[in-house]
Design a protein around this nucleic acid. Structure first.
Lengths: 210, 210
DNA sequence: GCAATAAGTCAGCGGGTGTTTACTTGTGCG
DNA sequence: CGCACAAGTAAACACCCGCTGACTTATTGC
């Protein structure tokens, strides 16, 4: 149901034609992602998404089956090539700040915005996706921090994730000065203090492997 | 509009009578608070609240004017005597853990549940309440931490708040092990590490005032 | 006890939302 | 070209929600 069609009329090109399934699918995805991130699932209406995308509402159900299907597609399919959750050669704090920056830019990025995971549909499937995504993120943090993955360190890594999530949430939803308006770069220092306190200093990457 | 009435028929007692405005008002408040905290504003329906409270739906509009009014009343009027945001004689981490405990108990507590502030109505008034509440919380943290309220320390106090908010959010909405199920007490140690890293050690309270 | 009034009930309206269905228009292949 | 089918459109359906207004029932002061 609502798959890409057995035989697509337009093979690959999205060139200047007025009708192109892949293009409108992508338009819907990015429009939906932006709305979902800023407003949450409930407050986002399908008509608004379609309006932003400049596309008919019915296409949402055609291509994604339902609003929930569209939401799950937002979780699964990034529009631009997905950024590594925790890129190497940077501190964890810097990586978190990178996520904040993506939240800041209203056009997007918005690759793996933390907010997207929250306040999604009450749907069971989405909840499972959310949990797995969060755990994966925490695990990436733990790995980047190095050391043995003991239960205590796993908990601490999840606290780092909680810090990042809290910052993203506050910045996105509450107008609290200075946190709401300060640049993501200015957060790196203090956040790094907390991360180091929780997980210890980052291991030297690359040239000095432990 | 929707005030407590110029001349209340029942003065104070909530004794055995079938009709008592104050009692049903309170019933509505606690039922609403629980729903709002667990489900958020949008997913909570007035009919559900009234059902939980064992009360007719129309009473919500009678006593609180609207669903939004009920929400704001939840923010303003705690059912039980309000706990200090940051109680003295405890570390900030312990105080945060206390908030987590209140989130854990499904009956409640729920005095100043962090979640309540988020995902409220898009209403302007509620947003303002939210911002002021959050700022007040951050300021209480800053005060408890002692030292001069420099802009940098204010930001750091807000990061502590972000950590608490993130933990509360994750525990309430995402089933991520071990964070979701670990006891609030077990969080005190790690959280305290982060808080100390951000704001320095707590000043000695009471007997050794600065 | 008896009106006066507050507390509570009931049914329905109006609006908004997700979704479907029947239809039209464009596109590529033979 | 022209046919078949995909892509897109328009309108309406069905549902749920917040809210309202007229009504009924209990409670209180005299």
């Amino acid at each position: 149901m609502a798959d890409s069609g057995s035989r697509t009329a337009v093979s690959t090109g999205s060139r200047g034609h007025k009708r192109n399934a892949a293009t409108t699918r992508t338009k819907l995805l990015s429009a939906a992602r932006r709305r979902f991130v800023t407003l949450g699932f409930d407050r986002t209406t399908t008509r608004d998404i379609a309006g932003d995308a400049g596309v008919n509402v019915a296409l949402i159900n055609r291509y994604f089956g339902s609003k929930e299907g569209l939401f799950e597609a937002c979780l699964e399919e990034p529009t631009s090539p997905r950024l590594a959750l925790i890129a190497e050669g940077r501190t964890i704090a810097e990586n978190l700040a990178e996520q904040f920056k993506q939240l800041d830019s209203p056009e997007y990025g918005l690759q793996v915005p933390l907010m997207l995971w929250l306040q999604g549909p009450g749907d069971e499937r989405a909840a499972a996706l959310r949990s797995r995504g969060m755990e994966g993120f925490a695990e990436a943090i733990l790995e980047a921090a190095g050391g043995a993955p003991t239960p205590d360190r796993r908990l601490r890594a999840q606290l780092v994730l909680a810090l990042g999530l809290g910052v993203a949430t506050l910045r996105a939803t509450v107008d609290m000065q200075p946190l709401a308006t300060v640049s993501a770069d200015a957060l790196v220092g203090p956040v790094d203090d907390a991360v180091v306190a929780l997980l210890g200093p980052m291991p030297a990457t690359g040239r000095k492997p432990a």
